[in-house]
Amino acid sequence: MSFLKYRLRMDKNVHLIMKILTVFSIVTILAILLGLLYKAYPILKTHSLTNLLLSKDWFPQKELFGLFPFISSTFQVTGLAMFIAVPFCLLASIYLSEYASKSITRLVLPLIDILAGIPSVIFGIWGIILIVPFIRDYVAPFFGKVSSGYSILTGGIVLAVMLIPVMVNILLEVFNTVSRGYKEASLALGATKWQCIKHVLLIKSAPGIISAIALSLSRAFGETLAVLMVVGNVTKSPKSILDPAQPLPALIANNYGEMMSVDLYDSALLLASLVLFIIVLFFNIIARVILRRLEKNNH
């Protein structure tokens, strides 16, 4: 009898521990948000938020903390990366899910998984070895410009390659959820495979495609090292995509060590983190909610 009691008590205790751990892992999001708000509060008290977000002047020594150049660089690098990655990923995912034979998918998917596992610093090194000279020696002269090769375009290309595995994996899952019946019905009516893809598959999975894009966007916004290594890190609003820039994550990573000497610097950088966190959270939640709904409809 006492052994049974012991087992039951054990069960109860473990249950409690698990409950606490689960709640703890959910509460982390709130904790991060509150922590960032708390640290960003001093600067929000002395500067207006619109001024911080829209001013172009970033002179920490004079207590001017305009985040606009960094926010705009972030959007440019990310936008460029998406512009490059989306068509490739869409076409490749359609091919892999609809046309490719099983032996091809079995070969390609593991390779894409390997790409997913490569750390961002390796992407950065690759950018330095291959993309930077390419931009400097071929692309910039082609447009009649001089560029060091460290530019928004370089960052965009490196980031685009990093996004491929994220996007392709989600897109493949999304295409999988489109029920076979729809496709077969359209094929039976005499549509070619491509017509079926164009009029059935892409339409049915449009929300999923949007969420795949949103999810990759949120990944792209936060990507730090790879972009930092190739983007040039200059505190100026870039005029063209061949100019160097400094996105938000790079700003935080580059300056966090030396902030101690200036008042409010620390607070400004955590405000930058907060802005980043909110952007990422926004895209992430939208994407996840759409995906959840798709999955539910499918079950």
Binding site: S25, I26, T28, I29, I32, G35, L36, K39, L215, S218, R219, F221, G222, E223, T224, P249, I252, A253, Y256, L269, L270, S273, L276, F277, V280, L281, N284, I285, R288
Partner: peptide, 16 residues
């Protein structure tokens, strides 16, 4: 929540 947490940039973890 975990999926969203997964998406939080690691620099934010580092800074905070």
């Amino acid at each position: 929540c975990l999926d969203v947490l997964w998406g939080v940039p690691s620099i934010v973890y580092g800074a905070l």
